[in-house]
């Protein structure tokens, strides 16, 4: 049980940073805690709600969220959310797990390989951030 709490804590940090921490909790729940894929996904969805709410409040306070352009994404997303959830219910659980594993692998490789895309971005707002925060992102020549 103590490991569940540690997994939940670490996931909370990653989830609030918007780096898809929920995947880690699902992996923990299925690989180490013995839940089936669909249960683990449901647990993560419920778990995510208060965590995301807290993070969204903090990020809004820090002026990192501009809500207005996001509204169409949320409205269309609700339709997608219903469709995706219904597919998840009817798809074979083992197949769902395999597809999820491939999805996780693809995201993992992408996270590591596509860091260059991010390196360009801080330049646009580096005035707001101390240079040492981004020292790893620049190539000093």
């Amino acid at each position: 049980m103590i490991w569940s709490f540690i997994a939940a804590f670490v996931t909370g940090i990653l989830a609030s940073l918007g780096v898809g921490g929920g995947m880690l909790l699902i992996i923990y729940l299925t690989v180490f805690a013995g839940f089936d894929q669909l249960s683990a996904q449901g647990i993560n969805l419920l778990y995510f709600l208060p965590i995301a709410l807290l993070a969204v409040i903090l990020h809004t306070k820090n002026k990192l969220i501009n809500w207005k352009p996001l509204i169409p994404a949320i409205l269309a997303g609700i339709i997608g959310a219903v469709i995706g959830s219904i597919i998840a219910k009817f798809i074979d659980k083992e197949l769902l797990r395999t597809v999820f594993a491939v999805f996780v692998l693809v995201i993992g490789v992408k996270e590591i390989l596509y860091k260059k895309q991010d390196e360009k971005m801080p330049i646009k707002y580096n005035t707001a951030v101390s240079p040492k925060t981004y020292r790893g992102n620049y190539k000093h020549s």
């Binding site: 989830a15 918007g18 780096v19 898809g20 929920g22 995947m23 909790l25 699902i26 669909l38 683990a40 996904q41 449901g42 993560n44 969805l45 995510f48 352009p69 996001l70 509204i71 169409p72 994404a73 949320i74 409205l75 269309a76 997303g77 609700i78 339709i79 997608g80 959310a81 219903v82 469709i83 995706g84 959830s85 219904i86 597919i87 998840a88 769902l96 597809v99 999820f100 999805f103 996780v104 995201i107």
Partner: peptide, 22 residues
């Protein structure tokens, strides 16, 4: 653009119970 992205994000998030943010 936002609506199309939202639809994809919602579907992925519903199917995998996570990963919409990714």
């Amino acid at each position: 653009y936002y609506a199309l992205c939202g639809a994809v994000i919602g579907t992925v998030n519903g199917l995998f119970g996570s990963g919409g943010g990714v």
